[in-house]
Structure formats: structure tokens, C-alpha cells
Design a protein around this nucleic acid. Structure first.
Lengths: 205, 205
DNA sequence: TAAATAAGTTACTTATCGGTAACTGGTGTG
DNA sequence: CACACCAGTTACCGATAAGTAACTTATTTA
């Protein structure tokens, strides 16, 4: 039966054609290793081996390590906004409560046993090169983070929304990075309270 | 002339025997490269070459790269406390003014053109291994940082000094790390104001 | 002047890095 | 059945990683 272009356009029963299991395994393994040990510290050989395959299969799925890294950061970003949206959803229209929920959930997540803070913030340090395909991903992510916090500050009627939004961002980023030096009971325990205090100060008439 | 053990013990005209110029050059070069490009990204060959010498001379001065890194972090720490003490000195007995001065100076320093935030905070991410000789150095440094901020909060009579001190630390660390994603005009511009707001809230009766 | 010390040089080790060529075996599916 | 495709395997490339041996050349300094 002759295939015409219409055939190709219609019937995409599966959007992505399942890609392959190996690729997924590699990606999952790489993500875990990147987060735990750092991006530069993990080689493609290690990734492939740990994923139960070998380097050749790695390069059949990914053009280069840098491309994998960029994809890893992209996925981390998507998961982050999914988390964000879920935390924020129950308090639609109540921006202050939304920020409180974000901070409480962030503290819980970041204090968890195997947490190493924010994957993207960490990559910020490991990838200073502008040419790296992951650099743009992480720049965009943090810009979006700032945008959202400033927007929330504005919605709650803060006198100086940009200042409040930025201050909240500093608390958030500080929470992530101090997790790497204080395993339990670090300064992050003050994060939620500090956020409330700042919001109080920016809201009272 | 026969040398006895007494000869070795007496007459140390110079405490450290000037060590050598090469060692210093290597150390300066390495420090600059570690800060700019990251610790893992810089090899000893690059360091030696950039310092105008070679690898053999490197290993005559340093037992290993890890030892160099630990020494680099130690020196960064000493320079940090020197900065801190100098900023704080003019306001002895006025802890609130001291914190304000710290934040203002921190913002100025961290916004400078070639700044890449805090060298030690950055190393926090690159060195997760407990066995690394630099790990303890950086852990101690951040613990001392927290200690000092909590102490200042207590001295200024804050109702919850530990909470205020920790919150200030989150702002400070957040300032450092966001510098890596926002080149100019990042959230750090809100740091000093946020610190004041937090202190206000913790001090008013 | 002679011994000690600092430093440059060349060559080497073993391991790992990111990345590729070419061949093999298995599993579908038309 | 045949062909495509996915994946495993082995072997390799050049570059770089950290680290060492051994010899030479300056500069001190006693």
C-alpha cells in the first residue's frame, strides 16, 4: 500500500515513538549521577556502565555528553515547575499563601536525606561556559524563577514587589545551597519564617 | 664542621624559609583559575604552564592537587575573615550597623565585573567527597559564618537571634550564588534592603 | 670555592576523558 | 522469509588527567 504524506501526518498513535528503553535508562541513570556526584565528576563511560549498557549505545542515543547535560537540566526544570504549580494550585488567588506553601514544601524537600539542593543551581557553578548547551537552559530557568516570585509579590500587593520578589529568591537560593554544607538543621530551618517576616513587612499599611 | 641536633633546633632566622617564589606563583595562578573556571575544570598541567613553570616544579611544591585545593580554600577563608573584620571594625559595639555594612560591602564586591560569587560556596558543590582534604575547610568556614551571624543577631537584641542570624545567612549565600546566573542587576540588588527589613522586624518591641 | 638548594627539562607511567568504526546478535514486522 | 532496527561488543582514536624518575642548570650561602 502506497504511503503518501497524509499518512505520515495523520495517525501518530504515540507522539514520541517510545524512543527506546536504553535511552531512558541512560537518561535516568545520568540524572541520578549528575545530581549526586556533580556533572563534571561523571563520565559517559560511568553512565553507560551504571545503566547496564556501554558507551556505544550511549552515543547512539545522545549526540554528546553536553547535549545529555542540557537535556538533564531541561527535564529538571520541567519537574521543578510541575512541583511549583502543584504546590501553588490549592491557593489560587491567594499569592501570599502560595509563597508560604512554596517555602514550606521547599524546606521539606530540601531537607530530605539524599537532597543535594537544587540541581540547576548546582549546575550554575559547574557550567560557566557560555557555549555550553546547558548554560542557556539554566539561565532561562533562574530568570523564570525570579519572574514568578516578583509576580507573586506584585499580586499580593507588596509596596515594592520587585524588592520582595528578589528577597524571596535570595532566601530560596540560599536554602538550596546551604543544604550542601549543613546536612541537618542548617540555616534553612529559618527560611519559611524569614519569608513570612519579609511579606509581613512589605504588606502592612 | 660537625652539625649536631642543637644546630638544627636553634637559629631559625626566618619562621618559614621564604618557601620559594615558584610556589607562590603557582598558588596565585591556581587560585585565579580555580575561582574563574572551577576547581575540577583546571588541571595541574594547566596551572603549572600558566604560572610559567612545569608540572615537576608543581609537585615539588605541593604534594597533590587536592592538597593545593585545600590550601586554596584555607587562604580564601582567611581573606574572607580579614574582609569581614575590616568592614565590621568601624562599627564596634553596633551589631546592627555591622550587619548593614557587611551586606553593603558584600553587594559591592559580588557585583564587581569579574566576580563569581563566593569561592568557598562554589567549592561546596564541586567537592562533595568527605575524604577530600578541602571538604573540612569549607565545612568549617560556613559553620563559622553562621556562628558569627547568629552572634551578631544576639548582640543586637533580636527576639529570636538564631532565626534572624540564619535568615541573614540565607540572604548572603543566596546573593553569592545568584551572581552566577544574573550578571548585572540580579536579585542581589535586594539583599541589603531585605537584611534591614528582617532586622527591623526582629528588633521592634 | 664548594656544597646545598631551587628550579627547569625531558620522558615516562597509568588511568580516564569524550568520541568513533565496524562487526555481531536478537527481535520485530511487513 | 527478509529486511529493518535496536542493541551489545571489541577495539580503537587523540587528548588530557594526576603523578613520578632522573638529569641538568642556576642561584644561594656558608
Amino acid at each position: 500500500m502506497a504511503r503518501n504524506s497524509a499518512d505520515l501526518v495523520i495517525e501518530p498513535e504515540v507522539p514520541a515513538p517510545a524512543k527506546s528503553r536504553v535511552r531512558d535508562r541512560i537518561f535516568e541513570t545520568a540524572s541520578a549521577l549528575f545530581y549526586r556526584r556533580g556533572i563534571r565528576a561523571v563520565g559517559v563511560d560511568t553512565i553507560a556502565c551504571e545503566a547496564g549498557t556501554n558507551k556505544m549505545s550511549f552515543y547512539r542515543s545522545f549526540a554528546s555528553k553536553d547535549v545529555l547535560v542540557a537535556e538533564y537540566l531541561g527535564e529538571q526544570g520541567r519537574e521543578y515547575w510541575t512541583w511549583w504549580d502543584e504546590v501553588v494550585a490549592p491557593y489560587a488567588g491567594k499569592p501570599r499563601k502560595q509563597v508560604e506553601a512554596l517555602f514550606e514544601s521547599c524546606v521539606t524537600k530540601t531537607c530530605a536525606k539524599d537532597s543535594r539542593g537544587c540541581a540547576i543551581a548546582n549546575a550554575t557553578i559547574e557550567i560557566p561556559e557560555d557555549e555550553h548547551p546547558g548554560r542557556k537552559v539554566l539561565l532561562d530557568h533562574k530568570a523564570e524563577s525570579r519572574r514568578r516570585l516578583r509576580k507573586l509579590a506584585k499580586e499580593m500587593g507588596a509596596r515594592e514587589p520587585d524588592v520582595l520578589g528578589d528577597a524571596l529568591m535570595l532566601l530560596l537560593e540560599g536554602s538550596y545551597i546551604t543544604r550542601l554544607t549543613f546536612s541537618h538543621g542548617g540555616p534553612i530551618i529559618a527560611a519559611a519564617k524569614a519569608a513570612k517576616t519579609l511579606m509581613d513587612a512589605h504588606l502592612k499599611r
